[in-house]
Design a binder for these strands. Sequence first.
DNA 1: TAGAGTTAGTTATGCGGATAACATTATCCG
DNA 2: CGGATAATGTTATCCGCATAACTAACTCTA
Lengths: 149, 149
Amino acid sequence: MNFDQADAINQAIRRLSLWHRARVGELLAPLGLHPGQEALLLELARSGPMIQAALSTALGCEPPSVTQMSRKLEASGHVLRRPARGDKRASVVELTDSGTALVEQLRRLWRGLAEETVAGVAEPSVAGLPELLNTLASNVRRADRPGAQ
Amino acid sequence: MNFDQADAINQAIRRLSLWHRARVGELLAPLGLHPGQEALLLELARSGPMIQAALSTALGCEPPSVTQMSRKLEASGHVLRRPARGDKRASVVELTDSGTALVEQLRRLWRGLAEETVAGVAEPSVAGLPELLNTLASNVRRADRPGAQ
DNA sequence: TAGAGTTAGTTATGCGGATAACATTATCCG
DNA sequence: CGGATAATGTTATCCGCATAACTAACTCTA
């Protein structure tokens, strides 16, 4: 692969990252949320109450990020943190009623965003998009590379 | 589009963003650079010395980000900032010799990253990848949406 | 030409996310 | 059992990037 091709790919990924996140931020602002927090709330809605370590894995980010985000969502009342029974190290995070209500709005917003994102892309490509993007993501994921711990 | 499809797309984009950036960070660390800075250096290598406002547009990020990044790259000696002749408001940013040398290493690294990223993706898909990703990016780009200023 | 409006850049502040260093608790095994 | 090792979570610190608020300079037009 020559430099121009490589650059086109890397730049496109960068642009998509930046602008998708910015758009998420715009859509989330009226709900009082910041980008990233929606992922945590949606994960809790999907999987129910869970330990922060599990959240860290599910969200694909590091434990300190989870600590901060869950603290802030706790401060805004959308999430509740309590000691895990059976493991004095762990904290269980779960949705409050307020958080559950927010998730409902999030779901609508999330669908609108996805539709907006794939506008003008042929249907077959759209169907294969998650798999394609996840392949790219896995390829650059640290834990999937030899030598990672 | 139902929620699960939408979620698959949005989540995949999030993961790709996170992990691609993390991987860039890993590769850049030995050069003493942080993710984002490579984009600025490569843009200067592509287009030559330019005003910060042009950099802001080219990089797809906001002016304060450009101010900070160019200041830090100036501090590390890879970039030089000087007043623009003909416009007392503007600053021209250009590569130093050190920056030019870095860009050479960046190019190699950039190619390796792109190859790593598209591993296991069929050739026709790879060829169309930049266009596909740029379509997605444009779709969520603020400036391309009605009502943006 | 004078004032309105626009554009370039900066500072301040806040968030997500990362790493490094650390304390605490679990677990595994000799 | 008890000590080494692993896992959970926290704090501190750093960076990119964002918005808001501001200054200074350019441009356009009445």
